[in-house]
Each structure stands twice: as C-alpha cells, then as structure tokens.
Nucleic acid binder design. Structure first.
Length: 286
DNA sequence: AACGGTGACCCCTTTACTTCA
DNA sequence: GCTGAAGTAAAGGGGTCACCG
C-alpha cells in the first residue's frame, strides 16, 4: 500500500487508530484476556483499487472486524467478540473428576461447608430453603447486601479468598454466593462495555464511510482537473502540497525525497490519530 | 526436569426465578 | 390476573495456573 514514485499522485491513505488495551485488575494472576478494544485503521485507494475502509474490533486474533468496501456497496462483517484466547484450545480434554457436582463440592472446602451449615440454622437462607433440597431456589439479595457487594466491587472487581470469606461473613452469605455475584457482576460490566464499544464502532463506521465518500468525490474532481490541465497540475504539484480535504499546506520539496515535501504526500505520511477516541476527530483524514 | 493429577479460580453460556410494565 | 421482557442468581462446562508427588 502507499504511494511510491511511479504510482499515481492521487493515491490517498487515511488511517484512524484507536487501540486502548485495558489494564488488568491488580489482584489477578492470569494475563489479561479481554479482547474487546478497538482498532481502526487503513483505507487506501488509487487508480487500480476501489476506495475502501476497514474497521476492526481488534485483539481477538483478527477475527472481529467490520469491513466497509466502496461507497456504494457496504459489506459489514461482524463476528461476536468471543474469547478467542480460549477457543484455540483443545476440543475436549476433560478430567474424569470434572463433572459439575464433583466440581462444586470440591469448591466448597470443609471449612466452608461447616460454616454454611452453621449459618443455615439461623439465617435467611434457611428460611427460604423450604422448597426442598433439589429445588433451585432463587435468592434475592437485600438492598444492603447488594450495596455492600457493589461497594466492594468498586474497590476490586475480583476477590482473593480472604476478601471473599470476609465479605461472605459480613453479608451472611456463602462464599460461593459472593463468588458468583462477582462473576455475574463482571459479566454485566463487560456486556455494558461491549455495548458501548459497539456504539462507538457504529459511529466510526458512519464517519469513515462519509469520509470515504467525500474523498472519492475529490479524487474524481482531481482526475477531471488533471485531464483538463495536465501541465498546470504538474506545476502545482511541484511547488505546493495541499491536502485537499483540510487545506493543510506543507513546504516545497527539498530534493531529498523527503516524503513531507513530496507533492501529495499523504500516502507516505498519513495523518494518524493515536488518541483513544476517533470520534474526537470527526474527519478521519484530518 | 518432565509429567500427570488435583484444587482453585476464572469466564462463558444457559437455566430458572423474580420483578415490572 | 396474564404475559412477555428484562434483570439476575445459580449451575454447568471448560480453560489456565500453581502446586505436589
């Protein structure tokens, strides 16, 4: 991609970058696996290629992308942002002890079980337990409990065992319940973030599509102008470089092949945006 | 040192219950 | 009162990592 010396001078490259990999919560050992951060980049066109824009939701192994091609036909290819970090692993290598129940029982240490049993004699859990052992009863957390959990979640989105135990004691819940609540809470947070990202991408897509349309129009105009006045265009290019879309003017060529000074040098030095919000730069080119 | 088993923890998906319009 | 949607607690399955023998 890009423009070299023998390429037509009207090749333009437009890039827009957004890549904010979020940092992992402090008290977790495993590497951060959240794939949902945005990366928008790269459009190019010249005489041989149709204008195109590509929007990507990057970080998941390259699988997630919007692709917008052409100003007329817009192809949108969206794959769900699944956890590709895990999808690559084997189909099924399940331990013989990994059945659900065994797993659950395993997760409750004997200490916890005793504690739970004690609590069941006196707490609201036992009050709501009357449906029977097999029935899946739905606990509704009290406002106080929810508030405390929320407060705790604000401080750290994951819990270490001590924190979990303490919180469970404080809330009069099973440690497992606290754990599950945090899991669900993290999931909700992630879902919300995904929705926000999705909206952001939609807006970016619209912006870039508009930009693409506009630039294509400019190309057509420049082509027409070049055909009509080839000599004039040559002189103009040799002395002055003007970004047609934003009217930024660079200096005259220095003879060193410095891209900054080449006529219509946008391709070799495109306007990049490194901040985290492409919407703060409504014009993708400028 | 390499390896397999195990426990702990996490995430994702699904299920089932509750609440509310 | 019934119903469907939304919210959410819990279950189940599968993955990673650390530890141990």
């Amino acid at each position: 991609m890009g423009i070299d010396d023998d390429a037509p001078n009207n090749g333009l490259v437009l890039r827009l970058g957004l890549s904010s990999a979020p940092s992992r919560p402090d008290n977790n050992q495993t590497p951060y696996k959240n794939p949902s951060f945005l990366k928008l980049e790269a459009t190019s066109f010249d005489d041989e290629h149709e204008p195109s824009l590509t929007l990507g939701l990057s970080g998941g192994g390259g699988g997630d992308s919007f692709h917008v091609t052409d100003t007329v036909t817009e192809k949108v290819d969206v794959k769900p942002a699944g956890d590709l970090y895990r999808q690559a692993s084997s189909v099924s290598a399940v331990s013989s002890f990994s059945s659900g129940k065994a797993k659950r029982e395993r997760e409750l240490s004997s200490e916890e079980l005793m504690e739970v049993e004690k609590r069941n004699n006196s707490s609201r859990l036992s009050d709501e337990d009357e449906e029977g052992v097999n029935g899946r009863k739905k606990l509704r957390l009290s406002k106080q409990q929810s508030a405390l959990l929320e407060e705790s979640f604000k401080q750290h989105s994951t819990l270490n065992p001590k924190q979990k135990q303490a919180l469970a004691r404080q809330l009069n819940l099973k440690p497992r319940q606290v754990e599950v609540w945090f899991q669900n809470r993290r999931a909700r947070t992630k879902l919300k973030q995904t929705e926000v990202d999705c909206e952001l991408l939609k807006k970016c897509c619209e912006t870039l599509t508009d930009e693409n349309r506009r630039l294509q129009k400019e190309i057509q105009e420049l082509k027409a102008l070049k055909l009509a006045q080839p000599f004039y265009m040559h002189m103009q290019a040799a002395t002055l470089t003007v970004c047609p879309s934003c009217q930024i003017t660079s200096g005259v060529p220095d003879g060193n092949g410095n891209s900054d000074n080449n006529p219509f040098s946008m391709a070799s030095k495109p306007h990049h945006f490194y901040n985290n919000n492409p919407l703060s730069n409504p014009s993708a080119a400028c």
